[in-house]
């Protein structure tokens, strides 16, 4: 009996869009960063929610953002957090604060920068990583 073919390194977990998140992921596929914004109070939210967590309003649309952000904090993993990260180590996990609103935070990976060059407040901008034809992840890299 022939040996089984070696399984390729599994993919990272991919987001499964739902009705709330689909506009965010659809924008990412177009290489745009969109965030939910409350019609009543203007509060921007990430992740998207069914009601505004600032005022309780239910009128929530999506609005484009500049993608400009600063580095809020980060960590570096040397062990894979899931099997799909085995060939991506070390992985830099970052929390960024978007320019448009204080404490509007997003998690992502940092690209095009070494861990020893990082500092809190570092100017960043959104980068779009096309993972499959249906999935683009929002990442961040140094502001150009």
């Amino acid at each position: 009996m022939k040996p089984m073919p070696q399984a390729a390194c599994p993919q990272r977990p991919l987001p499964l869009p739902d009705p709330l998140s689909e506009p965010f992921w659809a924008a990412a596929r177009r290489h745009e960063l969109h965030m939910q914004k409350c019609d009543a109070c203007g509060w921007m939210a990430y992740p998207p929610e069914v009601a505004c967590r600032n005022c309780g309003g239910a009128g929530l649309g999506f609005t484009p953002l500049s993608g400009r952000a600063t580095l809020h904090s980060w960590t570096v993993l040397h062990d894979p957090p899931s099997p799909g990260f085995r060939d991506r180590l070390p992985v830099i996990l970052a929390v960024v604060e978007l320019e448009e609103q204080a404490r509007l935070l997003m998690s992502g990976n940092l690209v095009d920068i070494a861990a020893d060059a990082l500092r809190i407040g570092l100017p960043l901008e959104a980068r779009f990583e096309d993972v499959t034809k249906d999935c683009t992840l929002v990442q961040f890299g140094p502001a150009r």
Binding site: L14, P15, S21, S82, P83, F85, L93, S107
Partner: peptide, 22 residues
């Protein structure tokens, strides 16, 4: 802590694709 699923749903979709699952 080991995110074994191929898909990240709900709140995990904003974290696990980046390895932010733990």
């Amino acid at each position: 802590v080991n995110f074994e699923s191929a898909h990240a749903v709900g709140g995990d979709q904003y974290l696990a694709p980046y390895g932010f699952s733990m």
